[in-house]
Design a protein around this nucleic acid. Structure first.
Lengths: 275, 275
DNA sequence: ACGTATGTCTCATATAATGAGATAATTGGG
DNA sequence: CCCAATTATCTCATTATATGAGACATACGT
């Protein structure tokens, strides 16, 4: 931010030409992600990393010794328990998660539905926590999941804290194929066309909460509201989600103030003061 | 589970002399654990790793760039969201977790209490999952936690699948200070003395489930049962835990068969057949 | 304002990772 | 039951790689 900055940064994408001084470390991390992606055999990993078997194997052994990978002798590699531990610690270190926990648990009990907590990360919403509802249905979301901002309730609540100028771009990013197939394919839901989307966002901004009407997952509707921190910025968002039959229009309307109240309570815990 | 998995390097301690050819990677991982331990300032990290600021900073930047650390410009470093993601993936990759989920959720609903799922790892029990109960009380356990085998219900259930010859050793490991203070300090619970412990374990083995009578956490009792895999070995264990007032002796007794039934159901899902 | 801790670079050096290859152990299919 | 394929372990010469001292600018607490 000081003056002359010049080139680079901004939307540099992730160019391959970024020789930071830690090739070895980076390779090791890439290896972890490789295993996370389901590639568990030495050969496959070596191929994906472009390293010879020898080198690959050496890193693998180190990672296993440290507990980052789990090794099943002649079968392959899986992510190790150290990662579970660190992942959990990472969750605990976020003040937001710790603070929001009791509130969203209460909200889940109160509504009987599934409650999510998420933050914006880049162009996506990142799910930090989830309390399962008491209804029969299972939701296959999980902490650690990423989704386009504009296609989820939480994402739209998060967008309320962003510059409206970015809304159009984010909306576009959530629409897989803008062209062709004007008829409803029905199997892959998508956000409404831009003009309508913008109109709804305006409503949501006025209300202080947002809806998702099966735009992300068919059969799932949700009501979301943003959480703000001490500086007044949007620090995250929560949502109550359930199957459509449990979510008629009038319940959605009733849920709005409720979800917002819970979100505001978390905001207060974070030092936020209404303005 | 490749039964003899524990014999490998069990008592190897963690000798410092382990020149596996990947110093850089190992340092990076140590750095992560350092941040996990709460050391978030550059100076502290550098001190703990024994690396100069320059080197430390370089690794830090790489780790941040990859999302393994989160950087708050002039405040410090926290574990990043990539770790949350990997941790969650690690959980999903364990068939046990995926398979047990619905069962332990049902058990939690049915009993109203907190349900845990864990596996043996070395001399400890490693918690893989937790479903919070619907009673008011909060249990501060979490997935990713480690505890001595002999001081928890789940641990004792897991021990049922181990060679009884190891029981004494594990029992000893769970007793902090064998000597001194024979009077009950009362603030730090511990397992019963060995002869009694052994006797109880024999009972548990016969019943197919195990108890924990406030031996780990004062005021918390639990009932646990082992889960077996296709080869018949103990692959994990589940437990139902609650505050003592909710867990009078007769309820514990009634819970035994119930917990065992749930555990057996999971075992069946894993391909186990009664023998 | 001052002092301290951090963010960002550069560069000569040798340390530390590399990768080819040779060998043994294991698996699974025909 | 043997063969082919994959994996598990090593060694070792080579140099690419990470290292660490230091210079400088910038933010922070008090």
């Amino acid at each position: 931010m000081t003056a002359p900055m010049t080139l680079d940064d901004a939307d540099n994408a992730d160019a391959p030409a970024k020789p930071a001084g830690t090739q070895t470390l980076l390779r090791g991390l890439t290896l972890l992600e490789c295993v996370a992606a389901g590639v568990g055999d030495v050969k496959g990993i070596a191929a994906r990393l472009g390293t010879p078997r020898s080198t690959t194997h050496r890193m693998l052994t180190s990672l296993v010794a440290e507990g980052y990978l789990h090794h099943i002798p002649h079968k392959g590699y899986l992510l190790g328990s150290k990662l579970i531990q660190l992942g959990q610690k990472a969750l605990e270190q976020r003040p937001l998660v710790a603070v929001a926990r009791p509130r969203i648990e209460a909200l889940a009990r109160q509504t009987g539905d599934t409650v999510h907590l998420g933050v914006a990360e880049g162009d996506e919403v990142f799910y930090l926590d989830k309390i399962a509802g008491t209804r029969g249905l299972e939701m296959r979301s999980r902490a650690g999941l990423r989704m386009p901002l504009a296609s989820t309730g939480i994402g739209k609540a998060l967008m309320l804290g962003l510059d409206p100028a970015r809304w159009a771009g984010l909306h576009a990013r959530a629409c897989p194929e803008e062209s062709a197939a004007p008829a409803t394919p029905a199997d892959r839901p998508r956000p409404p066309p831009w003009p309508e989307f913008a109109a709804r966002m305006a409503d949501y901004a006025a209300w202080g909460w947002a809806f998702d009407l099966e735009e992300n997952e068919l059969g799932i509707r949700c009501v979301a509201a943003p959480v703000r921190d001490a500086r007044g910025g949007v620090a995250g968002a929560i949502s109550v989600a359930s199957a459509t039959p449990y979510m008629p229009d009038d319940r959605m309307r009733a849920l709005g103030p409720l979800v917002r109240a819970a979100a505001d309570a978390i905001s207060c815990d974070l030092g936020w003061t209404a303005a």
